[in-house]
Simulated assay, not measured.
Amino acid sequence: MLKHCVLSVDYSEKWDKIFDHLPGIIKLLGVERLSLTHVVETHNRKRLEDNDSAIAHHLEKIEKRLQTELDVQVDHVVRHGFPAAELAAAARKLNADGIIALNRNHSAGRAALFGNVVLNLTRVSSVPVVVIPADAEQAVADSPLMLATDGSDSSRNAQRAFEKMLSRIDHGFVVWIKADDDDDHDEERVQPVLKHFAETYPKVQSRRIMGDPAEKLVSFAEQEHVALLIIGKRGNTPIAELLVGSTAEAVARASHRPVLLMP
């Protein structure tokens, strides 16, 4: 599905956590090539390790490790600028199908005021983004998939991705959260989706849950120990994509399970 992915690489101690999750994520997404990408933040004071030669050496070590541990092609690239924008630009230049990044910050207040690389990336990326929380538990062999949907047009790509992945993990959940301000039209819109899965995939269970969408989705994913939560990004215009506070962004920020955001 996402055969070629950009993998965001940084120097943080927590970043090594990504090695625990890559084998499962790569298999689930059908990844065949990883382009390791490190962005030197030119607006910050440079550190000794921020020269291209040192960074390339660092990436080469990771490249060798991944080539040994995973059956994928691996290459690397160094870019300079603002991380989120440069990662999105790298994906475009390399014609990548998606981006994989580690989220090291669950702080809603800090993210809202200052943003963080991963959340900014979800706003500007034109390709799917896989967000792996630094504190996520490694998925076990029988972990289910999870699709969050409201039946809208913006969730169709997420639904298609979910159905493709059911060839690898054949069981999971389709979850619709009915918010307090939803009307009957919302229920009518999502009913055909729930009916489709009930009739087509016997091992996929449908759930209707009342409450705050982001909070309930994160809680349900944690409760069911899902391997991946798939959700569609809201917004069809650049301005809409930059708005803070969407359900998808809130889920990506707070989730303790890997999240795939589909444009």
Rank of each mutant, 00 (worst) to 15 (best):
I55T: 04
V77K: 14
P128K: 13
D184H: 05
D183V: 04
D52E: 15
P192K: 09
M165T: 01
H38R: 13
E63W: 03
I55L: 14
D52F: 01
K164V: 07
G211C: 14
V190M: 06
L94F: 00
D183R: 14
E199Y: 08
A54K: 07
V244C: 07
A88V: 02
S12P: 08
I230Q: 09
A252R: 02
A54F: 06
E249A: 12
H58F: 15
W15K: 04
R110I: 06
L34F: 07
V204W: 02
E188R: 09
H256W: 05
S35H: 03
P128D: 10
Q159K: 08
A134W: 00
W176M: 10
L147T: 04
C5L: 10
G232I: 09
A85L: 11
T122L: 11
I177T: 02
W176G: 06
P192C: 08
L94G: 03
H256V: 05
A141Y: 08
A54N: 06
E63D: 15
K3V: 10
D186K: 07
R156P: 00
T37Y: 07
S219M: 05
M165Q: 07
N116T: 14
A227S: 14
D153W: 11
R160F: 10
D97W: 05
L145T: 07
A84S: 11
V124F: 01
A250Y: 00
V77Q: 08
V251A: 06
N51D: 12
E222D: 08
M1L: 13
F19N: 04
R189W: 05
R92A: 13
H225Q: 10
H106F: 12
L48R: 09
D150H: 08
K216F: 04
K27H: 13
S126K: 11
L48W: 07
I18C: 12
S12H: 05
P192R: 07
V9E: 12
I25D: 01
N236C: 00
Q73W: 11
Q67F: 02
I62G: 04
E60Q: 14
A252F: 06
A112T: 06
L87Y: 05
Q67L: 15
N120H: 09
V77R: 15
D75E: 15
A248I: 01
G245S: 06
T122Y: 03
V259W: 02
E86D: 14
N236P: 00
E187G: 02
S143C: 09
H57A: 12
A91R: 04
D97F: 04
G151D: 07
L217C: 09
L48Q: 00
D16H: 03
L66G: 03
H185R: 09
A248N: 01
E60A: 13
I230T: 08
P202S: 12
L29E: 06
F19Y: 12
G172P: 02
G98Y: 00
L36K: 09
A88W: 12
G172C: 03
L87K: 05
L145M: 07
N120P: 10
D75V: 10
T42S: 15
G172D: 03
C5N: 04
A134V: 01
V124P: 01
N51E: 13
A96L: 13
R104E: 10
H43V: 08
E69C: 10
L2N: 03
H225R: 11
V131A: 05
K203Y: 11
R234S: 10
D186E: 09
P144L: 12
K203C: 11
L34P: 01
D183A: 10
K216C: 15
